[in-house]
Design a protein around this nucleic acid. Structure first.
Lengths: 186, 186
DNA sequence: ACCTGAACACCGTTCAAGT
DNA sequence: ACCTGAACACCGTTCAAGT
C-alpha cells in the first residue's frame, strides 16, 4: 500500500467498498461523501480526485455488487436438473434466508437514475433464469412468460413487504402452497 | 382566508398539500422545508410554527393520502358479488391503469420510519380485502392466506418492477394467465 | 397567534495551492 | 499523482425579535 508522510493513500476501491457498506446499512442516500471522508480519514476534496461525483461512486459500488452477486447463486441452482426442485430451492432461499441488505436497499431505490440500469440488468438475468425453470417444466411459451413474471414480481414484493414487521405478520408460515401454485402444470 | 399585510396566512393544510404533491413528484426525500417555503412564499421559520419537524409534515401528508385513498377503491370493488370478477377487476386496475404516483413512491420508501406505520395499515386493509375474495371463492383457510399474500406481493412487485422501463419489457402483454393461476380452485 | 431573519450544522462540488 | 482547505449553495432546526 502506498503511503505519504505515514498516512496511507486511498484507492478508488477503498471508497467503493465503504460506499457499498453504507448502502447496506442505510440505503443509497446514506452514501455521503462527507461522512465517508471522515470514516476513511481523508478530506472531501480528495474524493474528487478518484470520482467525478457522488453518482460515479454509487455506480462503481453497484457494479461491484452486481459482479459479486451474479457469480453467486445462479450457477449453483442451475446445476439442479429437476426444475421443480430448482424452483423450490430458489423459493426456500427467498423465504428462509435474510435477503442481502444491499439488494433490499436497491430494489427500494430502483427508480433512482443511477440504480436503475444496474438493477434492470440483474433483473433481466434473473427473469431469464426463471423462464428456464418453467420451460423445463414443459409449460407453453405464453405461460412461461406470465409465470416467470408472476414469480419474480412476487419475489420483489415479498421482500419489500417482509421488511416491514407489521406487514410481515400477514405472511403465511410456509411457502409450500405458493410453490405448488407456481409449479402447477397447465 | 386569513391575511396579514396583504399576504395570506398559511395553514397546516397548505403545507400538507404541498408536501403530498412533492412526494408524488419526487418521493419522500423531495419534501424539503426550504423548497416548500419558497414555493409557498414563506420563510422556513414559519414552517416550524405549524409542525414539530419535517417528519411531522410527512406524517400529516401520509395520513391525508391514506384517508383519501382507502375511501376510494375498496367499497366500489366490494359491491361486486362474484369473487372471480372482483379479482379480475382488481387486477385490471393494477395492470392497466397508471398507479397513483404517491403510492409508488411510498412502497419504495416503506422502510422509512415515518412511512412504515401508515404503509403497514393500508397494506393490512388490502390483504384483508384479498382474503375475502379467496374465501368467497371457497378455498380452505390455509390456501386463503397463502394466496392473498402471493397476490399482494405480486401487486407490490409488479409496480416496483414496472416503473423501470428496461425491466417492464419483460412483462407479458396481458395479465389473463396470472388471474387464472391466482383464481384457480384447490 | 403567526411570521421573519439570522445563526449553526451538514453535505455536494469546485478549485487554487500544497507535497 | 494525490491530497488539503477554503469557498459556495442547499437544507434542517432553533430562537430572539417582530406584528
Amino acid at each position: 500500500m502506498a503511503t505519504r508522510g505515514g498516512k496511507l493513500l486511498l484507492t478508488r476501491d477503498d471508497w467503493t467498498r465503504a460506499a457499498l457498506d453504507a448502502i447496506g446499512e442505510g440505503g443509497v442516500e446514506a452514501v455521503a461523501v462527507d461522512r465517508l471522508a471522515k470514516t476513511l480519514g481523508a478530506s472531501r476534496g480528495s474524493f474528487y480526485w478518484h470520482f467525478r461525483d457522488r453518482a460515479d461512486l454509487i455506480d462503481a459500488a453497484l457494479e461491484r455488487w452486481a459482479r459479486e452477486n451474479t457469480a453467486d447463486l445462479v450457477p449453483e441452482l442451475d446445476a439442479i436438473p429437476d426444475p421443480v426442485k430448482r424452483l423450490r430451492m430458489l423459493l426456500r432461499r427467498v423465504y428462509e434466508q435474510a435477503v442481502d441488505a444491499v439488494e433490499l436497499r436497491l430494489s427500494a431505490a430502483s427508480d433512482d437514475p443511477v440504480v436503475a440500469p444496474v438493477f434492470a440488468r440483474v433483473t433481466r438475468q434473473r427473469i431469464e433464469f426463471l423462464r428456464r425453470i418453467f420451460t423445463d417444466l414443459g409449460l407453453p411459451p405464453s405461460q412461461v412468460a406470465a409465470r416467470a413474471w408472476l414469480a419474480y414480481a412476487f419475489y420483489i414484493g415479498h421482500h419489500q413487504l417482509s421488511k416491514n414487521p407489521a406487514v410481515a405478520e400477514e405472511r403465511p408460515a410456509r411457502l409450500d402452497r405458493v410453490v405448488e401454485l407456481l409449479a402447477r402444470s397447465g
